[in-house]
Write a protein that binds this DNA or RNA. Sequence first.
DNA 1: GTGAAAGCGCTAACAG
DNA 2: CTGTTAGCGCTTTCAC
Lengths: 332, 332
Amino acid sequence: MANEQEPTIYSVAREAQVSISTVSRVLNSPHLVKQETRDKVLKAIDQLGFVPKAAAQAQAKKQLGRVGVLTPFFTHPSFVQRMRGIASVLASNSYELVIYPVELVDQVYYYLETIPVTRRLDGLITMALTMDDTVAERFVANNFPAVLMEFEHSAFSNVLVDNIRGGRIAAEYLLGKGHTRCAFVGDGGLPEYSIRPSDGRYTGFNQIFIEKGIDLPADHVIFPTPDQVLDKIEQLLNSPNRPTAIFAASDELAMQVLTVARRKELTVPKDLAVIGFDDLDFASHIGLTTISQQLDESGKIAAEFLLKQIQNPEQPKLNITLQLSIIERDTV
Amino acid sequence: MANEQEPTIYSVAREAQVSISTVSRVLNSPHLVKQETRDKVLKAIDQLGFVPKAAAQAQAKKQLGRVGVLTPFFTHPSFVQRMRGIASVLASNSYELVIYPVELVDQVYYYLETIPVTRRLDGLITMALTMDDTVAERFVANNFPAVLMEFEHSAFSNVLVDNIRGGRIAAEYLLGKGHTRCAFVGDGGLPEYSIRPSDGRYTGFNQIFIEKGIDLPADHVIFPTPDQVLDKIEQLLNSPNRPTAIFAASDELAMQVLTVARRKELTVPKDLAVIGFDDLDFASHIGLTTISQQLDESGKIAAEFLLKQIQNPEQPKLNITLQLSIIERDTV
DNA sequence: GTGAAAGCGCTAACAG
DNA sequence: CTGTTAGCGCTTTCAC
């Protein structure tokens, strides 16, 4: 066996009897190299099994080929599905996806403070995270590209969800189906650094009832914390004037409504109509009627925008709001 | 305003009137620096707002502080939940988590071939991915640490799931509850490069029936592809000798069984008992009885092991199998 | 304790 | 088209 040294461009250069620059060129701009020498180098390259070391490349180049996603509890399906969209465009542009899950407030701050200055990333996407001016300024001061999802700050491009509109759509749909005793189930108790999409969805939902002069009783609107969900829903369904339709602010809540319905042997949608929000993967698996916010697509768009900004810092910032649409399945 | 240059150790050194080595030291081994000079440097550091550039550090050090996870369809909840475990130990050891989602066979190969040689990572965790000897050899040849989850190869440490045992547990539990007409629903049509956990779960399930001499009719065992699931389950529940209990090889399948049951207005568990596998987050939300494979924990263990191996290449390889346990909720 | 100096492995002008 | 050379920004011996 030959000498087993970590192959570098130097050893390749020696082997091929050329300079390191030539080796670097056949790697980065092959068209600048004469066919003949290129072949010679290529031969040496796979003879030695040479592969450029990523860290060294990154150090010499300005690009790292890596973007990060900062997300609260990244296991929440809606975030994961957006990441799938992000991942797909990153992959096709050969960027790596680094995930920073945050569970504590401190972590958000830590990441938001270090990321723009350590430059271990080419850009960042944040999900449902609030961002204050101080932090934003650090990003712009360091000229660090970022796009925010589900939160708006003028210093960045933002990919937004029109939650109010979503709530209105749900209300109109339910009302259109003839329901008049409706209820709303939202997400209670999210971490402080995360936004609460439920709020806007409720606002929009309620707006329609007000506009149409239909009653949406206060006790038909609940925002249970995760561990209260099942109980609160059960109370709701035990109330004397039990709702005939429920708008759950997320598919996960809708699934839980379905669970309580099953336990109480209520037939869906006959006894109880249920509509969710998000159109997660599993929504189609369980035939849940829901409002799609095009999660995958929104992730793609965010990623595409971030890449554009990385490649061209002059890229104007802008806000994007995706279309919402009702996906009719069999729970309404 | 002062001169706005990217602060480097050089500028800090100049500002503090010391050498760059000293600056580097207060950053990496402060105890080697006299208190006095340390303070001087520290002062210069935050006066200039200096932060070491990650890429340069990585280039000079041997460590990158970054591990990767290679996973088929990373949106599958069971993978995501394992990643949560992985992420938590990585975070507490200040390692970054980079995700390589694979959707095509080619990608698996690409990553498996490039990762060990480009060294953009300190180590890799693969999930439910088959790994052949050629690839394995490249890893050991490059001395690249990896741990495999849900697949066993002697060149690595492996974190395994005893699927057969899981199937047996399910069967014994159902039989113990007095069910004799049981059925099995597995996962059909997974990508070729991914393993099929359903198979082992079925094997174990079936074993018990054979051992006890109880019939598990062939038409009560189905492996539908994703788009067939609902239909096949419905057929199952329409059969003349309809099963009184179903073991679904994953919580997601179980959820779909529940959906069909709802549509057919079957009461669970009275008319139909359902048990799943995985104990995903949502299992508790919907009161699903299931078999826990400690997803989070297994991710943690895999990550801990990988880190050990990264820190000490001599670390002996080993196989870990987590305990399975039944989580009784209200669908059985 | 601290500084000088030699890399790390590659890219990117700059000449020729 | 190809080689020379100067970095990239930090870590790490090795002396003093």
